[in-house]
Amino acid sequence: MKTRLLIPPSEGKADGGKNNPLKSVSGITADLLAAIEKADPQKLYGLKEKALKKAQAVNANVLNSKTLPAIERYTGVVYDAIAYHTLKNTSDFNDKVRIVSGLFGLVAPTDLIPNYRLKIDKLQAAKRWVNANSEQLKNTFVIDVLPQAHKKAVRYEHGIEVEFVLKKAGKKMPAGHQGKHIKGRFVRWLIENAITDPKQFIDFTEEGYTWTGELFLKNV
Results as ranks from 00 to 15, higher is better:
33 L>K: 06
84 Y>H: 14
191 I>V: 15
168 K>D: 14
182 I>R: 00
140 T>R: 04
182 I>G: 02
60 A>N: 10
208 G>T: 06
117 R>N: 06
184 G>L: 04
113 I>K: 00
144 D>E: 12
36 I>T: 01
204 F>N: 09
79 Y>A: 04
187 V>Q: 04
33 L>A: 05
147 P>D: 09
127 K>G: 00
198 P>E: 07
86 T>S: 15
154 V>W: 03
8 P>W: 08
107 V>N: 06
59 N>I: 01
197 D>M: 12
66 K>M: 12
186 F>Y: 11
65 S>E: 07
83 A>H: 10
121 D>G: 03
38 K>Q: 14
78 V>C: 01
43 K>I: 06
131 N>G: 05
123 L>F: 04
1 M>P: 05
122 K>T: 02
82 I>P: 00
74 Y>Q: 03
92 D>P: 00
132 A>S: 14
206 E>N: 13
155 R>L: 14
66 K>W: 08
23 K>A: 13
143 I>L: 15
40 D>A: 06
121 D>A: 05
71 I>G: 02
195 I>Q: 11
94 N>M: 07
175 A>T: 11
141 F>I: 08
116 Y>Q: 01
57 A>K: 14
18 K>D: 12
86 T>Y: 03
115 N>Q: 15
67 T>Y: 00
82 I>Y: 02
163 E>A: 14
163 E>N: 13
91 S>T: 08
76 G>N: 04
67 T>K: 03
112 L>W: 04
188 R>L: 01
53 K>N: 08
160 I>A: 09
181 H>L: 12
45 Y>R: 08
210 T>V: 15
168 K>H: 14
98 R>E: 13
151 K>N: 08
216 F>K: 12
104 F>W: 00
170 G>Y: 10
37 E>W: 05
121 D>M: 04
152 K>E: 14
106 L>E: 03
107 V>S: 04
214 E>F: 14
160 I>E: 10
137 L>N: 10
161 E>M: 12
165 V>A: 06
48 K>A: 09
177 H>V: 09
204 F>V: 09
46 G>N: 08
88 K>S: 11
27 G>E: 08
189 W>A: 05
2 K>V: 09
51 A>M: 10
92 D>Y: 13
91 S>Y: 02
59 N>L: 01
66 K>S: 13
204 F>Y: 13
87 L>V: 01
187 V>D: 05
22 L>W: 03
73 R>K: 11
8 P>R: 01
2 K>Y: 07
83 A>F: 00
26 S>L: 10
2 K>R: 12
108 A>C: 09
124 Q>S: 13
205 T>I: 12
97 V>A: 12
93 F>I: 04
